[in-house]
Design a protein around this nucleic acid. Sequence first.
RNA 1: GCCGCCGUAGCUUAGUCGGUAGAGCGCGCGGCUGUUAACCGCGUGGUCCCCCGUUCGAGCCGGGGCGGCGGCGCCA
Length: 430
Amino acid sequence: MIDKIYCAEIKPEMERQRIKLAGWVYRKREIKDKVFIVLRDSSGIIQIVFKEELSKEAYGKARKVGIESSIIAEGVVKPDPRAPGGVEIQGDRIEVISNVEFFPITKDASEEFLLDVRHLHLRSPKVAAIMKVKATLMQAAREWLLQDGWYEVFPPIFLTAAVEGGSTLFKLKYFDKTAYLSQSAQLYLEAAIFGLEKVWSLTPSFRAEKSRTRRHLTEFWHLELEAAWMDLWDIMKVEEELVSYMVQRTLELRRKEVETFRKDLTTLKNAEPPFPRISYDEAIDILQSKGVQIEWGEDMGADEERVLTQEFDRPFFVYGYPKHIKAFYMKIDPEDERKALAADMLAPEGYGEIIGGSQREDSYEKLVQRIIEEGMDPKDYEWYLDLRKYGSVPHSGFGLGVERLVAWVLKLDHIKWATLFPRTPARLYP
RNA sequence: GCCGCCGUAGCUUAGUCGGUAGAGCGCGCGGCUGUUAACCGCGUGGUCCCCCGUUCGAGCCGGGGCGGCGGCGCCA
């Protein structure tokens, strides 16, 4: 590792100090006997001036270097009001590690082109800022989970057939058998709670749906929690505490990056427990009062959800959905057989669902009945049903879409910007 | 699966009535006493997505195909 300092570490107080930098040429401007190079590294940018009078050799090399070339430069710190950021480097040495003739990304690139050259786009400070925020959100999640006593587990990604509507699963050859890519670790986490009680996992999930929306990817990162002895209300508390900690911690550690994407931090700052809780019934009432055409029993579509999220200035829960629009493994509300003990967490500002959670059906008989009702075969769920045969307990869990959370936190217009190499029905490369 | 839109230079695009395909950016050369995605001048660069048809002549009109984008459904 070379002995260099980061661009962001350079401060006006370091005047006259000699320093070494390594990074990439972000901008270059030539004026008569000077070359201005704005150098970029993972921390930020700094301007280096190469003057012919200071070093003819360095000046000559700097003149020839192309955008995005990798270089090592040396010089002296000099505060200057004309420099971006108020400080610059008077450069007298430059070593060109790898020169670039021409860099494909220029100022008029379309979003589509940027995705075509995503491997090169990743070096932009804006993308780096998103990835830093994503990393910090997950760091915060780990901090919270650790201090609250949750065990991280590592569930399988290869699955056998028939879990929750096979049409959304990616199919692949597994020697002489057929396997599917996991779309949720949930069933496996449910098995894990019998030994560990409170477990979580972070895995990729795959959905073979040709969804063309700003909140769907075919591959996304899924943070899932499952806990024994918790009912729906317990798990909702976990959800709001976790999300709140992730958001507040990120505001603390990554304020600068967050602010480059959103000016108004209100909804983030408001994300403190308790989050508002409204029932599905209340949600329908609100929508009907807003003139939305929706009847009790119908699922909320994207349009309805958007209207609802605009009624809130922080994340909120909708609980008590009709059972027929929810998954078979969710427990039926004993006080109202039409409903499932399910709750979604929706982000405000039009973002909508970031968490789907529920209390799970823990009775063997009822679960078998639900599987049959949904037109599925209990034989396909033998091991899962076993969990209800041998020491079944009340338990609950949820799944959080990591990219969806990032998209809301940074007010991104599409969750694909929250991932390194987005996978959509049409995009598998790069 | 359904609805809508779009394919012209490396990128972003203009292209009138069907008549030799134009610009900006990038890149190259030159200029400029401190630039801020610098600026100025000159130069460089085309399978007009593909096929078929109409026509003396198609980027433009007609038919078919392929690819992509936006939205819905599905969901995290």
